[in-house]
Amino acid sequence: MAEMSNETVKAIIFQLKDEEYAIPVQQVGSIERELHITRVPQTPDFVTGVINLRGVVTPIIDLRKRFGIEASEYTDSTRIIIVYISEMEVGLIVDAAYDVIDIAKDAIEPPPEVIGTVDADYIEGVAKVDSRLLMLLNLDKVLSTQDYKELNNLEG
């Protein structure tokens, strides 16, 4: 994050259940409406499958499952955000994606450590913009299966 513009971070805001998350626009390739997803067997359960993204077979991750939020039916507002991380192209299923905003750097704080919750390290920081609370994601961590297993183990 340090190398980004001095003052603000331009980010795409999306929604999962009733919380809002942010991904820096540089990492976002496109936002797609729901496409046909082909299930890939024997993969982590948050990997929904693969889609045909303009001729490229792209893996899709269900962020609800990834974050341990209960599943819900896909609706009209469900979107797939295509992100680029370390030269991989991956799609993230979110409940809705609707905004691009500038977040002032000094509005970003490290994630609060609250006793009794799982310390999810894919949250890089929390930003308060007006009355909204935005969680900034660390996409590398989102994709790694390492802490996902730990999370599952913790929750039993």
Binding site: V40, P41, Q42, T43, V47, V50, V56, V57, T58, P59, E87, M88, E89, V90, L143
Partner: peptide, 12 residues
């Protein structure tokens, strides 16, 4: 087509 780097080594 390849499944990409993220989903490599999927069984069968």
């Amino acid at each position: 087509k390849s499944l990409g780097d993220y989903l490599k080594d999927v069984f069968a």
